[in-house]
């Protein structure tokens, strides 16, 4: 085994030792919060006001975690209920781009200032993209 291989191997091993407990912790936390996102009470929150609904959609998406496919299916259900496109887009986008559950892990790995600012910007972007899409597609 050459020297470079051994050095890279040791460096990767160190990263795994630090990261693995964090990843297990996040998966455990997501597993705990999943049922909250599959309930009917979510649908009752929307009020048929584009701005308020976009904000609600973004908040719910931010709290959610898990496979994005769940968000597409839920969003499809929201469409059938007459919820605005802006709210649906905000919900889908914040589901993947904002991660409140993963925030502790992001803070630890990438820095507090970065993680908080990135999540805030992603939250605002989700609402803005939702509103732009509503304007263009409706």
């Amino acid at each position: 085994m050459n020297k470079k291989f051994l050095q890279v191997y040791q460096k990767t091993q160190k990263i795994i030792i630090i990261t693995l407990p964090l990843v297990i912790g996040v998966v455990l936390l997501i597993s705990l919060l999943m049922p909250l996102l599959k309930s009917d009470w979510l649908i009752k929150l929307f009020q048929k006001n584009i701005l308020v609904d976009s904000l609600i959609g973004s908040v719910i998406g931010s709290l959610a975690a898990g496979n994005p496919i769940t968000s597409y299916i839920l969003a499809g259900e929201f469409t059938n209920l007459g919820i605005s496109l802006a709210a649906i887009v905000a919900f889908i986008l914040s589901w993947v781009t904002v991660g409140l559950v993963q925030l502790p892990a992001e803070v630890m790995m990438l820095g507090k200032r970065f993680a908080i600012l990135r999540n805030i910007l992603s939250f605002i972007s989700a609402i803005l993209i939702g509103l732009i899409m509503q304007l263009i597609l409706s």
């Binding site: 630090i18 996040v26 781009t97 790995m109």
Partner: peptide, 30 residues
């Protein structure tokens, strides 16, 4: 999942990868 990429990005950051580029990478994962 997003959190699986944190160690990789933290490692790149240590080598000088800009915060803005990390943000672009994470956003486009959507």
């Amino acid at each position: 999942p997003i959190y699986a990429w944190y160690p990789f990005l933290a490692d790149l950051k240590e080598q000088g990868f800009k915060n803005g580029l990390i943000s672009i990478f994470l956003y486009n994962r959507a």
